[in-house]
């Protein structure tokens, strides 16, 4: 059985059904215990919560294995389950805690800067910001920003997951990404207000 790929094991499992195919699922899941354990441990930061998260991931994977359609590798499919489950769990845990403090220093961000909204439609502004984010952010900044602002992952968990040295590691990337976006948006705002001033008018930061 150890010579079969993950996807071949799933195929054998689907063919045999439950309970006969359970041994294939057993082999399959065993191969990924380490990977899921490490992921959960880095996100949770403690063994107790990580163990519970990892168990939940496999309970879900087992419950949904019949629906795996082979449109990605099994390991990627498992990642999607682990990702969604763990991010949700962290979000719920965080909601009752201090994460609001993390966010407070974001409030000076230029999204609602006076004068700017009038010049660009909100939707257009978001489109421009998307382009700037993609163009300006380093790979690590993109990761940190996506995890923190889209998935609500707390900064210390991001630092552990990405192997950034310490909690201020992830925060430093948020600060630098914000600065880049702010600079780019300011430049754009000025340009859109004075369309005739041409290239040389880019303001200093």
């Amino acid at each position: 059985m150890s010579s079969l790929t993950d996807e071949e094991l799933v195929a054998k499992y689907l063919e045999a059904g439950r309970p006969a195919g359970t041994r294939y699922a057993d082999e399959l899941f065993q191969r990924h215990y380490g990977r899921v354990a490490l992921w959960c441990f880095r996100l949770a930061g403690d063994r107790e919560m990580a163990t519970d998260l990892a168990q939940d991931v496999f309970v879900k994977a087992w419950a949904h294995l019949d629906h795996f359609r082979m449109d990605s590798r099994f390991s990627t499919w498992l990642y999607m389950i682990a990702r969604n489950h763990c991010f949700n769990a962290l979000r719920q845990k965080q909601r009752s805690k201090e994460d609001a403090m993390d966010r407070a220093d974001i409030e000076d961000f230029p999204g609602t800067a006076a004068g700017f909204d009038r010049d660009l439609e909100q939707k257009e502004l978001t489109g421009v910001a998307r382009e700037i984010m993609a163009a300006e952010l380093s790979p690590v900044e993109a990761k940190v920003m996506m995890l923190h602002f889209v998935e609500d992952v707390p900064l210390p968990a991001i630092s552990r997951t990405l192997g950034l040295e310490n909690a201020s590691g992830a925060k430093a990337y948020v600060v630098s990404a914000k600065r880049k976006l702010k600079t780019a948006l300011n430049r754009l705002a000025l340009r859109s207000r004075r369309p005739s001033t041409g290239e040389g008018s880019t303001p200093d930061e």
Binding site: R35, L38, W39, R42, S75, T76, Y79, A82, R83, R130, E131, M133, A134, A135, L137, P139, V140, A142, K143, V144, M145, M146, L147, V150, T161, L162, G163
Partner: peptide
């Protein structure tokens, strides 16, 4: 190159697939 979300997602998937304790 045009999407910060996907760039982030690729790196996070990599950390899952290739993470070493």
């Amino acid at each position: 190159p045009r999407c910060a979300y996907c760039r982030g997602e690729v790196e996070v998937l990599r950390s899952f697939l290739e993470g070493v304790p």
